[in-house]
């Protein structure tokens, strides 16, 4: 199994660890460099790594722990120009990024390519994971419709995040990825988003359903998918 991991930060590190430990080949895409403010929650980076490329540093750290690990780094940003080309050839994509445009881009590209996608997010004390199997489970647009207006939802740099929460959510992302590609029987991931309120300690499976009119994965979209596969890029 080959997974493309978008984001080598707080969620990406723990997700990559669990996947590599399970024998999954992981390619990590992240253009960012390690910043001192990352160190309280991005567990594969130390003080001496500040300024180093995150993706390459994470891949190296994984190989230090599992010498037979198949972990590669791509020092690029997942964007409209390269998204479809990057995602093709993988069995699954994990979105561990921290911004809405990339999350919805990953959702739309994976829907077009028929690739499973694991969405994860953590902000403040709240975390969530959604496992998306195209044609079988709701996608990000079915649940959230689209990006919130700019400025409506603060980013981590404004709202903060409690450190261990990203470890929980990253681990859940790996669990969902393994369920989706190995078991095919998705269990509770099939129709629910897993959420955690870290301050109250309450974990929930929030029911979600497919939107037949979803522009990314709805019936109209599926009807056009054959055309998409013939070469149309996002």
């Amino acid at each position: 199994m080959k997974a493309l991991l978008l984001g080598a930060g707080g969620l990406g590190g723990p997700a990559a660890l669990s996947l590599v430990a399970a024998g999954v080949e992981v390619t990590i895409a992240d253009p960012d460099r390690v910043d001192p403010t990352n160190l309280s929650r991005q567990i594969f980076f130390g003080d001496a790594d500040v300024g180093a490329p995150k993706a390459d540093t994470l891949a190296h750290a994984l190989r230090e722990r599992f010498p037979l690990a198949r972990a590669q780094a791509i020092d690029v940003r997942f964007s409209r120009d390269n998204a479809a080309a990057l995602a093709r050839g993988f069995d699954l994509v994990l979105d561990a990024t921290d911004n809405f445009p990339t999350r919805f881009l990953a959702n739309d590209v994976c829907a077009r390519l028929g690739l499973p996608l694991i969405h994860g997010a953590a902000l403040g004390w709240l975390g969530q994971v959604l496992a998306i199997a195209p044609g079988r489970t709701p996608c990000l647009r079915c649940v959230f419709e689209g990006e919130p207006p700019v400025g409506e939802v603060p980013a981590c740099a404004q709202a903060g995040v409690i450190s261990p929460l990203v470890g929980v959510v990253g681990g859940w992302m790996a669990q969902a990825a393994l369920a989706i590609v190995r078991d095919r029987a998705l269990g509770r991931w099939a129709n629910a988003m897993r959420t955690l309120d870290g301050w109250s300690g309450v974990e929930r499976w929030v029911p979600v359903g497919r939107d037949p009119l979803c522009p990314a994965c709805g019936l109209a979209r599926e009807g056009n998918r054959a055309l998409d596969r013939e070469g149309a890029e996002c």
Binding site: P36, T37, L39, S40, R41, G124, W125, C156, A157, Q158, A159, G160, V161, I162, S163, W199
Partner: peptide, 13 residues
Amino acid sequence: VDRFSRQILLREV
């Protein structure tokens, strides 16, 4: 303050 800035931003921290 730099290292733990994302936690310090939280009202509960």
